[in-house]
Design a protein around this nucleic acid. Structure first.
Lengths: 205, 205, 205, 205
DNA sequence: GACTAAACGAGACGGTACGTCATGTCTTGGG
DNA sequence: CCCAAGACATGACGTACCGTCTCGTTTAGTC
């Protein structure tokens, strides 16, 4: 069996990397608004044709470049309790959204309302996996009796994640870690059984 | 006590109205992305110069046009209790954000991350008054003992409003009224003293 | 009475000249094949929009630029006899077609077969007036009995002018003045009555 | 008597033919302007590499394809008299230049001014043999006393052939057979001794 | 009733980026 | 060593708005 089935010159991995790197750099430096394909092509030493060959839209490239550089940082934690897992993940998320990378993602999330292709790309690469994990973790929490009585997973997830995202819509003041912690504590007090996560994780009472 | 101090032709009120109307119509019809000043000028029968004379930026015009047509609908309610007031206001807000006008506002909020002038305009006209009212109402709630012990106003407001805004960042599915109600109930259960205002608030399943 | 009827900012004569000059320079320097509108716009310090506003096609601009710089040189002579007029005009024409300008015109004439807009522009600006003059002069020659018996104007004009144009189709060797003179003499001997125009310029051997 | 001297895979005759056929078809159908190597390769089922391996330039291929399909039609006639030979050849030439093939050749001749490789290829394949034959035939005519006194071969050939080529430079109206005949008669009356070959050549009006 | 001066409509201006196209070169695996 | 397939960098294309500019024309209040 041969290494490859298709005839013709194979895709240049070097070019792919150069494009993704240039795209990510430009995205972080100039934001989505200044994300010009012409500039990406120029600094990557690539032709625009090559970009359009592999990425259907500007949005696809931006999202791909963003996650090519970022994705591995976002792991779904496993602390033993649902509350611990959610808190850990949300704090990590808040950290990501703060800083240069966060600006880029925020701008893309914002522009997604206007650009459907961007919306679709982000939904696939960003939202869907996180939503999937959230619902699944919430189901496990329900099964193990960690949720307060009457708490449905949808509203619970909305309450947990929204406060991290909302600042992306408004001015610059992304909430700092203590603020995030305070909001999370308040949300968790409504969602989970018992007290704070560490120490006695499941103090029945 | 003359009619006017300044010499020269006075500003044309007719032109101002025509521009604001055309701008609002275009904004609602085409969204922020399709909001072209050239089109506004053309349908208003105005010159671009006139627009730039009175509005510093495209964003200023869009925001001004939006609130010129919308603002009066948004009143701050007075139901007697803090929980009632917040619930009423948030439900009204959610209703506004659903529909054509909502799309326009959502797109503007999203684009604000990219366009500083838009951000500034929206912060002044939209965010600031609501934030002011929210903090003030929260302070009165604290004074009257309506808040659960240990609840700070910042996190409480974040928890209440964020779930309404966050969907603007993601795909089309704005939460319906029941969903909003469910989320609100959950949030309020952490923030306010006592039970839900009407009937049996927490129908255990 | 006002100077102008139309409202709006008037066309910039400076810009028009700059564009025509840049276009002509580029055309002469690089030929039709290298005649890029982007380069014209850049060296003229003009926007591409401005060019497209005033010239429907690349061909229109090229032809306009060419004749803006060249036209005045081509006057229709008046020597007293038809043979003298045609000879003078054709020699002048041959001189024009030799040299840098000639190359540009030759390339345009050649490319006209491929590019209809170029063909149309050249037909209007180049061919039509010359054809008109040729037929009209030929008619006067017939009326004054200068033509040999049985000579129709169409074939006569074809015989006179074709030898100057045909070299444009083939390689570089444009015929020199003496060659042109020899061909002209041969053609004239078939077309016109009697001997050579002035004195005895052509000592028959 | 081995099958082949050179090592490696021998050139595919099948591929050569397919490429020439596809090239000619495309040339006739779309003209020189629409003659895209990519399309040739695609419809020939060949790789672009193969084309560039065997034909140095696009022009070489086009010219080769054109004459591969056309050349044999153009024979040099032998009617007994120089005038008869030239007339026959020029009329055949005019016929060739009218019609689909003619369009292709005309476009190539036109584009040759712009594309040196095309010029060179056409000069070699088209112009040179015809020029050679013309001068040689003219020399024989001179030797046999068929030329009018004082007629040099260069100007004579220019007068005979130019009127057929010149229309290629201008609009669509290629001259019809009678027009060609009339021009030829006029030219021949200056070049050749005695009267026209058939009938009454000079119908005085 | 003439003068002054700013606002007005219209639209031309220099730019920037868009997404598409064909060119001629290159890089594979297979024959 | 040839072949097909097709990816690659390049560079121009014609389009769409941007925010600025320059006109000649209103439309008032002041002299």
């Amino acid at each position: 069996m041969s290494k490859s089935r298709v005839p013709g010159r194979p895709r240049s991995e070097k070019s792919r990397e150069a494009i993704l790197d240039a795209a990510f750099a430009l995205l972080v430096e100039r934001g989505w608004a200044g994300f010009a394909l012409e500039a990406v092509a120029a600094t990557a030493g690539a032709g625009k044709t090559t970009i359009y060959r592999w990425w259907k839209t500007k949005a696809d490239l931006a999202v791909d470049a963003f996650f090519h550089a970022t994705e591995e940082e976002l792991r779904f934690p496993d602390t033993g309790t649902a509350r611990g897992d959610f808190e850990a993940q949300i704090i990590e998320l808040a950290a990501l959204l703060t800083g240069a990378r966060g600006r880029a993602l925020a701008e893309m999330l914002g522009a997604a309302r206007t650009d459907p292709s961007l919306g679709k790309a982000l939904a696939e690469r960003w939202l869907a996996p996180r939503r999937r994990w959230g619902y699944e973790r919430m189901a496990r929490a329900a099964a193990s009796g960690e949720l307060a009585p009457g708490v449905a997973p949808g509203p619970a997830l909305a309450l947990l994640y929204s406060p991290v995202y909302t600042p992306l819509l408004f001015g610059g003041e992304t909430p700092g870690p203590e603020q995030i912690k305070a909001i999370l504590d308040l949300a968790c007090s409504a969602i989970f059984q018992g007290q704070a996560p560490q120490g006695s994780p499941d103090p029945t009472g």
